[in-house]
Write a protein that binds this DNA or RNA. Structure first.
Lengths: 224, 224
DNA sequence: TTAGTCCTGTCAAAGACCTAACATGATCGG
DNA sequence: CCGATCATGTTAGGTCTTTGACAGGACTAA
């Protein structure tokens, strides 16, 4: 991933940095809501459990957001990061699969705040079709393709059963979606220009498992 | 993180490897269910979009799971990884916060399969208390501490509102929980021996945002 | 038996990433 | 005005991670 920073220089931004930008923004929004005006790299880094030099290094790829001697101003940093991450331009989104997880996500209020207004929910189950979640009606899956085209939907959230995941994803892509947020426990194949983000709940659980099971062994295995 | 491999040697296992183990297991279980008996490092790696040498290198930390010339046997590899990850020993779990996300997670059937049987659900809302999800009743939050102690609960899933997250986490830890699966959009502080896994949905969304917004710019910024 | 093919375990080199250190600039109090 | 303090931007060096290459075992077919 490459960007041109504020000083006209081209940088290759490491993936690791990109993955941290949302963490910075997340924390900064909390600070902003708490009325904090200024924050130093040390304060911000400490609260995220990383090194201050790493944070400054990350910001450096974008030309820096302050000048030597002055801490970062929260009210300037937030919109700057929002623009870099792309949160400032709305990306209309749909949820496909109105099961428990799909409905839970549909109730998540932060989507709008993060630039992803929810425009539609789709499911095959006739018992679900017609219900409304936060004002958004559940529509039959058969209408999805036309809806995506008509409303210029860019991102689809995939919360369908595993066995139809690839099929539904294919329909989304054919209809014009450029990003898929995949909550199903399987890999889906897409053309290279379509971005897939896998949200593998099982993986999170297993990581937790690996670590908790090793509590109590740590005395004999120093230095993890 | 350190382990002793099958040849008695001590290795420090990199974090990057640990994060991949669940992906391997996840895929292998799918293969096993499909009746596949043997799989080579190339096949497995290709399906996960990584290099075969990396997969073999990862397995090498644990002494390897086959011998030169023979592909991996799915039925041997699955239990071996399950043991390493810790999925083979059940870890009783509770969900605290029976809102939409909490209920969605409570309906997730894979928890048992992954070694995390759901033993209880807790909430402060009297309208929710008494409801059952997949046979597990929702109990008042005030009973949580006693329940954790009595049933030897090891892991708590945190799906409460942000403003009470730290407070509820403190109660969990005081009651004896050793792992917290945090779905709230905030950091929580715990003693060092308690493992916290943050499942930050907003971060996943923002990563997707960063990438999808840059589609169309890729022609002028070659080589991402 | 033997050549050919497929495969893993192993290691060293290359690459990506993180961190400490420092030059420099801003601010404050006296 | 000046020193002390705090802060960022920047870079070089160290550390962690990935990759390619290869030795050697196992199987197959002729």
């Amino acid at each position: 991933m490459r960007v041109v920073n504020t000083k006209g220089k081209k940088f290759r931004v490491p993936d690791a940095t990109i993955l941290r930008l949302p963490l910075y923004l997340d924390k900064l929004i909390l600070l902003q809501q708490a009325g904090v005006k200024e924050v130093s790299s040390r304060q911000l880094a400490t609260s995220l459990d990383i090194k201050a030099s790493q944070l400054r290094h990350d910001f450096h790829y974008f030309g820096g957001f302050s000048k030597p001697g002055r801490p970062y101003q929260v009210d300037k940093l937030v919109p700057a990061l929002e623009e870099i991450i792309g949160v400032d331009v709305p990306v209309p989104m749909i949820i496909v699969g109105a099961g428990h997880l799909g409905q839970g996500l549909a109730n998540y209020r932060n989507f709008e705040r993060l630039g992803f207004p929810l425009r539609g929910i789709f499911d095959v189950d006739p018992k679900l079709v017609g219900l409304e979640i936060r004002g958004v009606p559940i529509r039959p899956l058969s209408e999805m393709t036309a809806f995506v085209k008509e409303h210029g939907i860019k991102v689809g959230v995939l919360t369908v059963p595993v066995n139809v995941a690839q099929d539904v994803a294919n329909q989304m892509v054919a209809a014009g979606v450029v990003g898929v947020w995949n909550f199903t426990p399987t890999d889906i194949r897409t053309p290279p220009q379509v971005i897939v983000r896998n949200e593998r709940l099982a993986v999170g659980l297993m990581c937790l498992s690996f670590k908790t099971k090793r509590i109590g062994q740590t005395e004999e295995l120093k230095g993890d």
